[in-house]
């Protein structure tokens, strides 16, 4: 008891706190890597339920997220048009530049990032809560005792669904975002619609689209990994599921924003 007490006292030292946080972060990255390796190793297995699960997860992750992602994209495109018009002081350049700015910002940045963040909050939370509940009610242990690999049966379909479906969602988001920008440009800012569209198509290249889709796939993988990892390792009881869900969403969002910087830096 006295030993425990002494350890608690020394933990108040700020240097030790920083050290403990760094150690925790390194350990957490290690655990995530091990988790990923276990998922990867399970790929060779095949269960009837797992393949059915992949299609139903793709439906949930992809089709189910369409409304919220499109709504977000539509208004983002509109805001981009307003902001770039304002940035160009509404001058003569506006007709030829607003479309270009909207399209570039959507394709390279806002399409993947916002769709990724929406995926994290809608799908990441749901996956973490579902797997967390299965963990605390011993359903994951039950899977193991029924000779079924939970990484293959539960985790892999969910990660793959996020990985495949986010790029699809981003393509839709880009299209609708540019449409939102066009609506605002033409009907609110009084710009020429055909000039706007020609600015869109002359402004973007294949590289912009590819960069956006690489981001989307990476963010999808991040969300899938973070959500399944935290759900799979949920602590005890209802509080454990709650913590796992919060962590899944927060860490997904943080991971999206950090990797976004690095992918952009590589491509630019």
């Amino acid at each position: 008891m006295s030993q425990l007490f002494a350890r608690n006292v020394t933990l108040f030292s700020p240097v030790q706190k920083i050290g403990a946080a760094v150690l925790w972060l390194i350990a957490e990255i290690g655990r995530l890597a091990l988790f990923t390796a276990k998922v990867g190793r399970s790929m060779g297995l095949n269960y009837r339920g797992a393949s059915g699960s992949l299609s139903s997860q793709m439906l949930f992750v992809g089709v189910g997220s369409v409304p919220i992602v499109l709504l977000t994209a539509l208004f983002t495109g509109g805001v981009l048009a307003l902001q770039s018009y304002h940035g160009l002081s509404g001058g003569p350049l506006a007709n030829t530049q607003v479309g270009r700015l909207v399209a570039l910002s959507m394709l390279r940045e806002l399409g993947p990032v916002l769709a990724g963040l929406m995926l994290a909050s809608r799908v990441g939370a749901a996956i973490a809560a579902e797997l967390g509940t299965m963990r605390v009610t011993e359903q994951i242990d039950a899977l193991v005792t029924l000779a079924t690999n939970p990484y293959r049966y539960l985790v892999l379909p969910r990660i793959l669904a996020c990985l495949f479906m986010l790029p699809m969602l981003v393509i839709l988001a880009n299209t609708v975002g540019i449409f939102g920008g066009w609506m605002v440009a033409v009907h609110s800012l009084g710009l020429d619609g055909s000039l706007f569209m020609s600015a869109v198509f002359s402004g973007i290249t294949n590289e912009d689209l590819i960069m956006g889709l690489v981001k989307a796939a990476t963010f999808g993988l991040m969300v899938g990994l973070m959500a399944t990892y935290h759900g799979f390792h949920a602590g005890n009881g209802a509080a454990g599921v709650g913590t796992a869900t919060t962590r899944a969403v927060v860490y997904s969002a943080v991971a999206i924003l950090i990797t976004d910087y690095f992918i952009t830096a590589v491509f630019v």
Partner: peptide, 26 residues
């Protein structure tokens, strides 16, 4: 040991486990 998932699954196929809270797939 879960370190060898294939061998472990083969062993689990020979075992049955009744969990305290049943742990049925809901």
């Amino acid at each position: 040991t879960l370190q060898q998932p294939t061998e472990h699954a083969a062993l689990m196929a020979k075992c049955g486990m009744l969990f305290q809270n049943s742990a049925l797939f809901d």
